[in-house]
Simulated scan of single mutants.
Amino acid sequence: MSQISSQTHAISFNPATGEQIGQYAFESAAALDAALTRAAFAFGKWKRKPLQDRSRLLTALAGALRETSEAMATMITQEMGKPIAQARGEIEKCAKLCEWYAEHGPAMLDAEATQVEGGKARIEYRPLGPILAVMPWNFPIWQVLRGAVPTLIAGNTYVLKHAPNVMGSAY
Rank of each mutant, 00 (worst) to 15 (best):
A31R: 11
A64H: 09
V116T: 09
K96S: 11
I4P: 03
R146P: 01
Y24I: 06
T59P: 00
V149R: 00
E92G: 03
G119T: 07
P150K: 02
S69P: 05
G129V: 04
E27L: 14
L32K: 10
Y24S: 07
W100T: 09
L58W: 02
E79Q: 10
Y125D: 01
R126F: 00
L109Q: 09
A163F: 06
S6L: 14
A107G: 09
F13Q: 11
A73P: 07
M75Y: 02
Q143F: 07
G155Q: 07
A42P: 06
M72N: 15
S12R: 03
P106R: 00
G18P: 03
A95L: 00
L145S: 05
T59G: 01
F41Y: 12
G89I: 07
A73Q: 08
S55K: 04
E67D: 15
Q7C: 10
S12Y: 12
E99I: 00
K120D: 13
A60H: 12
R54T: 09
E70P: 12
G168K: 03
C98T: 01
I4A: 14
P136I: 01
L160V: 11
R66M: 13
A163W: 04
Y171R: 15
K47A: 07
P127R: 00
K161H: 02
F26T: 06
G89D: 07
A170E: 01
A102I: 00
E19D: 10
Y125T: 11
G129H: 01
K47Q: 14
R146Y: 02
I21S: 06
L160A: 02
A107F: 00
R38K: 15
H9Y: 14
G81T: 04
T37N: 13
R48K: 13
L97M: 13
E103G: 00
A102S: 04
G105R: 00
K96I: 02
E99Q: 14
M135A: 12
V144N: 13
G119R: 10
L132W: 02
P140G: 04
H162D: 10
